[in-house]
Computed example of a mutant assay.
Amino acid sequence: MIEEPATTTQRRTEVEPRRSGELARPAARPAGPIAVYDTVTEGMTGWQFLRTWRWFGFIAAAILFAVVCVFLARWQFDRGQQASADNAIVAANYSAAPVPIDEALPTLASYDPSQNWQRVSVTGDYLTADQLVVRNRSNGGDNGFEVITPLQLSDGSIFIVDRGWVTPSADDPLSPAAIPDPATGTVTVVVHLRPSEEQGGTGAQSGNQISSITLPRVQQTIGGDVYTGAYGLLDSQSTAAQPGLQLLQTSMPTEDVGTHYSYTVQWLFFALIGFFGLGLAMRKEHRQLNSDDPEERQRATERLRKRASKPFTDEELEDEEIDGYLPLTRWGGSAAAAAPPPRVILPPQAKAAERPPGVEPPSGVE
């Protein structure tokens, strides 16, 4: 008969027999906590544990997290500052008296960001044959088309005017509804200057439809001496326009500033939370390593007394109804006094040294 190894016998004594369809379950462990020792901070007292590499890493991580949060807070603050500056420009330009186009835009490529939403007066004739439609444009949450019509000045130059927005056709959502013709003859319009847009959309130009008001591309499409620095969003004109187009901007636009400053405060708060969490971890480690210190014991007793003096919360009362009791520490008692002493797990060498000479352990037991 072949004798089974001791490890096999020990395994059989530690695991209950497995039933059909079930995994093997380990036998119940002895009651009571098991002592666990930290070899990194063992023997340290006071705040000496902060000089270990582990805590160096924790502190460095908290500092790095704070630096990232401060960087993001500064980024949001700069965005808020830029939004405030943009709003100031719009407020100064939106309702100001119109400026002649040759004064506002001395050359075809002229435009400065400080001229955003500036009111400009232009006199000329609409070139209806070169009219274009910009697809996928939103107005009040609805999707539709913007109609841009070239306006030829007396010197032959061409200024692009965005005459308004129109809904899609009821029969074909990819095409605009009926577009009213622009005024005939010489007209004087007042527009708000807007910069040339970046090329948008991936689709190619289809008929008179374009994906964005990119003025250099518009110049290539219609030809001639086109103003490529800015175009005009129609505000009013001397000859009343025919009904059918909706003006795109009827009130002064503003950028949201408060959100950026709110995010700035939040990121700074997150940086403080990181250091707060680090401080809590330091305090917890200090209390554990100095639990035998009389002063620390006195402070722990005082904490238990203050905690026991507080009224029970609804959650604690609910737990008492379910479990039938509240933890002893909640009443101001000592958890250490109520719990059995920790079971110290000795290494095999120590066990062998404590065993009397000539006595061998039972089969399957260390």
Rank of each mutant, 00 (worst) to 15 (best):
I63Q: 03
P340E: 07
V134I: 14
I158V: 14
I213D: 02
Q209D: 01
S169G: 07
W53Q: 15
A350L: 15
I2Q: 11
R217P: 03
L289T: 02
E295H: 13
S121Q: 08
Q82W: 05
G140P: 08
T254Y: 09
H192R: 13
L233C: 03
A109T: 10
S206C: 06
G332K: 00
W165I: 01
A85M: 06
A96F: 08
V190A: 04
E321G: 05
E360I: 14
L64Q: 03
L346V: 12
R137N: 01
A83L: 01
I273M: 14
N139G: 07
T128N: 13
P100V: 04
T202I: 10
D78S: 09
E321P: 00
A60G: 10
G46S: 00
V161P: 04
P362D: 06
L317V: 04
S20L: 15
D319H: 09
A61M: 14
V191R: 00
Y231H: 10
P340A: 08
F269T: 15
W53T: 11
I160D: 00
G229E: 06
M1A: 13
T107S: 13
Q249T: 15
Y111D: 01
L153K: 13
K351H: 15
V120P: 00
A6D: 13
P176L: 04
A308H: 00
S110W: 07
R305L: 02
N290H: 06
G185N: 03
T239L: 09
E302R: 09
L289F: 00
D162K: 06
L72H: 02
Y37C: 09
V161T: 03
L174H: 13
I158H: 02
